[in-house]
Design a protein around this nucleic acid. Structure first.
Lengths: 253, 253
DNA sequence: CTTGACTCTGACGTTACGTCAGGGTTGAAC
DNA sequence: GTTCAACCCTGACGTAACGTCAGAGTCAAG
């Protein structure tokens, strides 16, 4: 004599709301029997189904897809779950990133009540940094990544700022010297400045330098926002000039 | 002569869609100038604002709230961020739980293509288990938690099943013996079975036993679904009877 | 027969845009 | 001067999973 439940009763039993049961009913996920007057009547076996729905929902699977999984009883479950796991892992990455961004901002603005704009700036900075790190990871060896993690500590916003400015200056200066002989003293001085700035990033480490090289070669595949930021440095002649200058420097020495 | 941008241009610059800019405009988050014919015109300084919006959105803060943060320029930023961090950390907990549930299910059903229902059962089981663990954590000391983590490995679904059934049986038997003398042989036998089942969970460990005790004392504060599951064991007379039996056992020995 | 506790359906609200649809604007080519 | 592609505008519906009324019927007890 398997007991019969009315909505509210059944909802409490399963820990969901009456409205949710209505919803699942309409979506065809869980269609209970009805009394003559239209009241919904649930059996105990409906509870099992409902628990499955709630579980799959907890995994972030949309209701429509849950229905599909029930209908085409073909064992698509395993595949769906695998896919869903990947989706969730990706979400977790973003979540972690957001949490870390807030943590960093809280840490670096802890002393006193800094203005909102300063906090925001820090947050944007951290997010961009993580974005870059995450994306550029694939160019660097494990070892190089570890070393960069170390060197990251030296990258205060001020250093960052100064480094960017020096690159801009240098690039402008090289552009102005494009007519020169790459072996000339002026060109060699520019090449030296260039080398120094690169080393400011690599710390002279071979592994990091190698990764940087790979990344540079892969320019066409950089994401849009990266290309955007590199646009002021896109003048190919400058890069060629510097390469020639390095070559000239080597043969000379 | 700060450059002027049309929507599409500006959208590309910032890495968002035109529709998003429309949306922010309507919500009053970022209201650009207009040409005489109604075209939106963005200045470079609008980019800063937009980047802030995108950053805060990345942190999961709703657009309405972002607008509030901009409007009442009172430094509510810090507080909002702290709150948001908590929200995100909670989300992450649930995400982790979901991912682990899928992982466990994949692991335990890896050998061959088990039917969907079996996979689902496993998932529900894992979710419930994590739910319980998470919630009951507060009753146990660090040490006890570690030991339980160890003991968890012994908890196969079959053992679980058997243990549940034995509790049901025992409870029924005690109920049937409520009229007996707690010091009688029959009562003492029941008490012994009871002790054994408890030890099946605690492993005889003092720390775990202490935590279990704390949890039992706090019954009124258990979450609804827990109370539900414990409902078959809610007969107070049974608990009192067993306590008396234990007491009688001690004085006797 | 009244009343309180339930139940039903229908419909709008929420979030952050995506996606048309119908209709102007602009600048360059013809 | 016109045409045409490429943009731009506003308005409106769609999405996911229910929450929250609103108006109206049902049920069991007194």
């Amino acid at each position: 004599m398997s007991k019969l439940y009315h909505v509210l009763e059944f909802a409490k039993l399963a820990g969901v709301t009456v409205r949710a049961l209505h919803h699942y009913d309409r979506l065809g996920l869980l269609k209970p029997n009805r009394t003559e007057t239209g009241y919904r009547l649930y059996y105990l076996r409906d509870l099992e189904r409902l628990e499955q729905i709630v579980a799959l929902k907890f995994l972030g699977i949309p209701l429509k897809q849950i229905r599909h999984m029930f209908e085409r009883s073909t064992s698509a479950m395993s595949d769906s779950l695998q896919m869903q796991r990947r989706v969730l892992e990706e979400k977790r990455r973003l979540l972690d990133s957001a949490i870390r961004a807030i943590e960093e901002a809280e840490k670096s603005t802890a002393p006193g009540n800094r203005p909102d704009s300063a906090i925001l700036k820090k947050i944007i900075e951290v997010i961009e940094m993580q974005d870059n790190m995450d994306w550029s990871k694939k160019y660097y060896s494990e070892e190089a990544q570890a070393k960069m993690e170390e060197r990251k500590k030296l990258w205060s916003p001020e250093n960052q700022e100064r480094w960017s400015k020096e690159w801009s200056d240098l690039f402008r200066d090289v552009e102005a010297a494009l007519g020169e002989d790459p072996a000339s003293a002026r060109a060699q001085a520019l090449a030296a400045r260039w080398k120094k700035l690169v080393e400011g990033f690599t710390g002279g480490d071979q592994q990091i330098t190698a990764g940087l090289g790979k990344m540079y070669q892969d320019r066409p595949n950089w994401p849009a926002n990266m290309q955007q930021r590199m646009q002021p440095f896109s003048n190919k002649k400058v890069w060629e000039f510097i390469q020639k200058a390095f070559a000239a420097g080597k043969t000379a020495s």
